[in-house]
Design a protein around this nucleic acid. Structure first.
Length: 437
RNA sequence: GUGGAUGUAGCUCAGUGGUAGAGUCCCAGAAUGUGGAUCUGGUCGUCGCGGGUUCGAUCCCCGUCAUCCACCCCA
């Protein structure tokens, strides 16, 4: 007679238990801190938009992957598949209420109905940050700098930003006479790290001929210092121009700010997305480059041309939070934490129920997160509960302690007890140790 | 979307054409309120789901769902 529904989640969608969600929340707080330190402000937009808004310019892969359906009112709607397109609509709609340059960050879930794999889900969080309204080296550099700050804040300072400028690449393709095939060529070049030089060369030869393929392979090498690579690709592209100067300026700023050692000029980085027009960035964990980029972005000349006649140049990037976390987990450095409680007030004596609440109130007033175990149970069970939630301290007051007029503070890890004469002394003691952890 | 592997207790995994086990975890007791050792006993499974073959399926076949890997694409 049991017809319960089997509980389950959709392919590519996930539940997050407290430990995982605490880690995600901590990560978002760290990112927000990095963004705010540069003056970026938060925004949010709806998860659901008119399909024509989201798909206006999309084609091919995006179109196939987007979740799209008719709502109850017959509207043709779609779930956002990134945060950039909704941001374009947002800017077109609100630019008059805002100010330029506008620097925003946006951390939210997006949905893509593509096949899953480690670090690739159908529902995942992107953390975007963009500067709209300025087209210069200062803005490009600021995004680069925020990427470095974000990675450092997340405990991944051992990562490298690989950057390039599509303008230089396009000039080079024009010189080669293969500009009309640039989209396919860019896409092939983008796969260099994955498929290796031989395969890349043969695919390029099919696209552009053997001679051009050899020249392309010579162009996309990234085995020299930033300046040497820049000089080489600038020469191959036809000499000095604004695009190569831009890279030079950005690099000078990176050097001045001490982040140049984690920035590489890699002419093979082109980004698959075709709306990028200037600098492009990809960020790889040094210990796990095969995971793919955990933070990518670049410059686009016109963010919102689909929705407004006002020209809005911008530059930005996006941290793939779920992919990043998958990488950190694979590298064995997750920061597990079971709760935010620092102390558990043990429940050992019904006659002391009031005292327990008073003790907890006293701790919270001192800024110490704590909880009262809600029913009387054997001490071992309460200790076990505390340890599962990662609570470091237990406050013990049973009949014996009450008779002696003391509170016992027990450190769970060491199992050492200390007696305190009153709540004030106990709270003070806990304040000093709690702030250390 | 295409191809391959996997899916057995909360967790990690054995196993068999006759409806299932180990370790761990959890619960109780030895020790009647202060947990890391030991011993004893115990709970827990629609063997992913649906269908087929069979006297009988967790095992064989088909489908399906999910996870992982490769391709594709990308965060």
């Amino acid at each position: 007679m049991s017809d319960i529904i089997q509980p389950r989640v959709l392919k590519g969608f996930r539940d997050f238990l407290p430990e995982a969600e605490i880690e995600r929340a901590a990560m978002m707080e760290k990112l927000a801190g990095a963004f705010r330190s540069y003056g970026f402000v938060p925004i949010d937009t709806p998860a659901l938009e008119y399909a024509e808004i989201l798909l206006g310019k999309a084609g091919g892969e995006t179109e196939k992957q987007v979740y799209r359906f008719k709502d109850a009112g017959g509207r043709d709607v779609a779930m956002r598949f990134d945060l950039t397109v909704p941001f374009a609509r947002f800017m077109a709609e609100h630019v008059a209420e805002l100010y330029l340059p506008f620097k925003r960050y946006h951390m939210a879930k997006v949905w893509r109905g593509e096949n899953t794999q480690r670090g690739r889900y159908r529902e995942f969080v992107q953390c975007d940050f963009d500067i709209v309204g300025v087209d210069n080296a200062a803005a490009d550099f600021e995004i680069l700098s925020v990427i470095r700050s974000a990675m450092t804040a997340l405990g991944a300072a051992d990562s490298t930003v690989r950057m390039n400028n599509r303008g230089v690449f396009n000039r080079f393709l024009t010189r080669l006479g293969v500009a009309e095939r640039s989209v396919e060529i860019l896409r092939t070049v983008d796969k260099l790290a994955k498929i290796g030089p031989e395969e890349t060369r043969s695919q390029l030869a099919e696209l552009a001929g053997a001679t051009a393929a050899d020249e392309l392979m010579a162009f996309i090498r990234a085995d020299e210092a930033f300046g040497a690579t820049l000089d080489r690709i600038e020469r191959l592209a036809g000499g000095p121009a604004e695009d190569s100067d831009r890279l030079r300026e950005i690099y000078a700023m990176a050097q001045a700010c001490g982040i140049a050692d984690k920035v590489v000029l890699d002419p093979s980085i082109t980004r698959g997305l075709d709306y990028y027009t200037g600098v492009v960035f990809e960020t790889f964990l040094d210990a796990m480059p095969e995971l793919g980029s955990v933070c990518s972005g670049g410059r686009y000349n016109d963010l919102a041309s689909l929705y407004t006649k006002q020209r809005l140049p911008g530059v930005g990037a996006s941290v793939g939070m779920d992919r990043f976390l998958a990488g950190m987990e694979a590298l064995g450095r997750p920061s597990r934490r079971g709760s935010y409680s620092r102390a558990l007030v043990m429940n050992l004596d019904d006659a002391s129920a009031v005292d327990y609440q008073a003790a907890a109130a006293s701790l919270r007033a001192a800024g110490i997160a704590c909880e009262v175990f809600p029913e009387r149970r054997k001490p071992a069970q309460q200790f076990s509960y505390a340890e599962k939630k990662g609570i470091a301290f237990a406050l013990i007051r049973g009949e014996e302690e009450k008779a002696r007029g003391v509170w016992t503070l027990r450190e769970l890890a060491t199992r050492k007890n200390d007696d305190f004469d009153g709540l004030a002394a106990l709270t003070a003691a806990l304040s000093s140790v709690a702030s250390e952890a």
